[in-house]
Simulated assay, not measured.
Amino acid sequence: MDLIESNQLVNEQEHWWTKTRFCYIERAIKLLSKKRQSILEVGCGTCQNLAFLRTKERVSGNIERVVGFDPGFIDPPTFSWRKTNDLFVKTLENSSQESFDLLLAMDVLEHLDNDVEHLQNWLRYLKKDSLVLITVPAFECLWSYHDELLFHKRRYTKKTLRNLASQVGLEPLMLTYAFGHIFLPAFFIRKILAPFAKQKKSTDLQESHFLLNKALYSLGKIEALFGGNPLFGTSVIGIFTYANRDSNSLL
C-alpha cells in the first residue's frame, strides 16, 4: 500500500484488495520453486506484502531473507518476526551486496517519471533466473482523482507493461489484468459520479463492511486462481523471468 493511504484502513492485511494481491505473490513464490528464497520489495510502503511472507506459514518456510526499500520511510517499520536478518532501507545503494531471487514492484512504476530506468536499476540486484512481480494500475480511461491524490504519472495496459518489460530483458510468465469484477463499478464511480460530487480528499481504498469485504476478496481470489482476467481489470499484473545478466555483477 502507498504510504499516503496508510491511515485509511484499520487492518490492511484483511482488506479485500490487499489480500487479493497476496494471491499473486504466492503464485510467484510457487513459480520460483526454490526452497530458500531471498526477496527484495521496492517501494514497499507499509510492508504488508513482506509481513504476509513472514507470517503466513504456507509461504514463510520458503523465505530466507526479505529486504524492503522505500524512500518514503519515516522510520523503518518493525514487525514481530523471528528472523533478524531482514532489512528495511530508504536507499538501495550500499544497503546490500547480495542478489535476490524475487523482486516485488507492486504499484510503484506508475509513480516514476522514468519507469524503464528505475526498473533496470532494480534488476541489478537480482540473481540469474530470478523472477519479477510487477503490478500497476490499468487503463487510462480509469484516470481520476484517485491517481492525482497518489501522484501517479500514468496507467498501463498489458501491452504497455509488456513493452516496458522487454526493454529491460524481462520475459513474461504471466501477464494479466486483476480486479475485473470491480472494473465497471470503478469506472462508474470515477467517471460518472465523481464530476457531481464534492472534491475528493481521499483515495478509493477505504474500509468496507465485513460482508462486502469477504465477497470482494472471494471474487478476487477466484479470479487469481484462474490466472487473472485476460480482458480487463483495474490493475495489470505480470510475473516475469530475468535471465539476461551476469549473476556475479554485484559481487
Score class of each variant (00 low, 15 high):
D2S: 07
L3V: 04
N7P: 10
L9P: 03
V10C: 13
V10F: 14
H15R: 02
T20I: 01
R21E: 05
F22T: 01
I25S: 00
E26G: 12
R27K: 11
L32C: 05
K34H: 02
S38G: 10
C44P: 00
T46I: 05
Q48N: 15
Q48I: 14
L50W: 02
A51I: 10
L53A: 08
S60F: 03
S60P: 02
I63P: 01
I63D: 03
V66A: 07
V66S: 07
D70V: 09
I74W: 15
P76Q: 14
P77E: 01
S80T: 11
K83V: 11
T84V: 15
D86N: 13
D86S: 11
D86M: 11
L87T: 06
F88A: 04
K90H: 07
K90E: 07
L92V: 01
S95Y: 02
S96K: 12
S96P: 10
Q97V: 13
Q97T: 12
E98A: 09
L102V: 01
L102A: 02
L103P: 01
D107Y: 08
H111R: 06
D113C: 09
V116P: 09
H118W: 15
L119F: 07
L119W: 08
R124I: 10
D129V: 03
S130D: 04
V132F: 08
I134Q: 08
I134Y: 09
T135P: 01
V136L: 06
A138T: 04
F139N: 12
C141F: 14
L142C: 10
Y145N: 00
D147V: 07
D147I: 08
E148F: 13
L150H: 09
F151G: 13
H152S: 06
H152A: 04
R155H: 03
R155G: 01
Y156S: 05
K159I: 08
L164W: 08
Q167H: 13
Q167N: 14
L170K: 06
P172T: 05
P172N: 09
A178P: 04
G180I: 05
I182L: 08
F183C: 06
L184A: 11
L184F: 12
P185V: 04
P185S: 07
F187W: 07
K191S: 07
I192L: 10
Q199F: 00
Q199I: 00
K201I: 00
S202V: 11
T203I: 02
H209N: 11
L211S: 11
A215S: 13
S218D: 09
S218W: 12
I222F: 14
I222A: 15
E223V: 06
A224N: 00
G227Y: 05
G227N: 05
G228S: 01
G228R: 02
G228E: 01
N229Q: 01
P230R: 05
G233D: 04
T234H: 00
I237Y: 11
I237G: 10
T241N: 14
N244P: 10
N244Y: 13
R245H: 15
S247I: 15
N248K: 15
L250H: 04
